[in-house]
């Protein structure tokens, strides 16, 4: 499917570039026409495709579940209702199993993460050229844009912004609840009095910065690992899909071989996207649980 004008490298790069809206170097606002332009826009720009798909899928999730919530009765459920309730029970079970505190926000958040991340990841299963190709065609047909400079990334979780954004929100919540449940003193104590402690005051004073360094790294590692795990997995998966897609341009024998590879990887990927959604959810629950643990006395 790689267009003749593109080499394999260009094809891959093209697929890895977000549709970025921001201020050009000359001061005008608009979409970036190349990766360099996107980079120059700096922080004050936005990935239109990531936002579009994540919001669209999120709204889809909320719409379906809201409909199920409206129809929810104690009578026999049917079809979609049953499926939705199965997911709810699954998430509820996970939360009850891992979260020991009392917080009504955790279970809905876990549900949101699980379904939303799953839907976002699911976009990875759509053949890599369909949506970007359609968008490029529409842009060139209706707006006269050069299709080679229309970038469109379909899977928001292959954009670190999306995964970091979610992890950041979770991180903020864990910080908030850490302060709320443990108190400033308790939280500060947790960060500075572990893992080394001593009854000798001088020794303890030396230990505090060491402890803080260790604990702070551990604290910051949580959102980083949370987001990078999802991003890395999805990015790698997407990359393999792109590489397989390149094979379609290499003659019919390679194309058929690529077709089988594509099928196999897509089936395997169903497992990965579900697993990643589940891991993201479970880790969020665990982090929230850690934030709700009352410090032990030393």
């Amino acid at each position: 499917m790689a267009e003749e004008a593109l080499t394999a490298g260009q094809y891959i790069k093209h697929h890895l570039q977000n549709m970025t809206y921001g201020q050009h170097a000359d001061g005008t606002w608009g979409l970036a026409h190349s990766a360099e332009e996107a980079k120059e826009m700096g922080f004050m720009s936005i990935n239109v495709d990531t936002m579009f798909w994540s919001i669209l899928l999120g709204v889809l999730f909320l719409w379906i579940f809201r409909r199920a919530a409206k129809n929810a009765t104690a009578d026999t459920p049917s079809g979609l209702q049953n499926f939705i309730e199965m997911i709810i029970e699954f998430v509820d079970g996970s939360v009850k199993g891992a979260f020991n505190g009392r917080n009504a926000i955790v279970a809905p958040m876990a549900l949101t993460i699980f379904v939303w991340v799953f839907l976002i990841n699911f976009m990875d299963l759509i053949p890599v050229d369909w949506l970007p190709g359609s968008v490029a065609w529409m842009a060139s047909t209706f707006f006269g844009a050069d299709p080679h400079h229309v970038y469109f990334k379909v899977v928001p979780s292959t954009d670190p912004n999306a995964t970091f954004g979610m992890a950041l929100a979770v991180f903020m919540l864990t910080i908030y609840y850490s302060f709320k449940i443990k108190g400033v003193k308790g939280f500060a104590g947790e960060l500075t009095l572990h893992p080394f402690s001593s009854s000798n005051n001088v020794l303890q004073l030396i230990f505090i910065p060491i402890n803080f360094l260790l604990e702070f790294v551990a604290l910051v590692a949580k959102p980083l690992s949370l987001s990078l795990r999802l991003y890395g997995n999805m990015f790698a998966g997407e990359m393999i899909f792109i590489l397989i897609a390149i094979m379609y341009g290499g003659g019919w024998a390679l194309g058929i071989f690529g077709g089988f590879l594509h099928l196999g990887w897509a089936i395997f990927h169903i497992l990965i996207i579900t697993l990643q959604a589940y891991i993201f959810m479970t880790l969020t629950i665990v982090y929230m649980d850690l934030a709700h643990q009352v410090p032990e006395e030393h």
Binding site: G22, M41, G42, I46, P156, G165, M166, A169
Partner: peptide
């Protein structure tokens, strides 16, 4: 690139 999308996603 890390950009406003981060905030938007949050």
């Amino acid at each position: 690139n890390i950009n406003l999308t981060l905030i938007g996603q949050s």
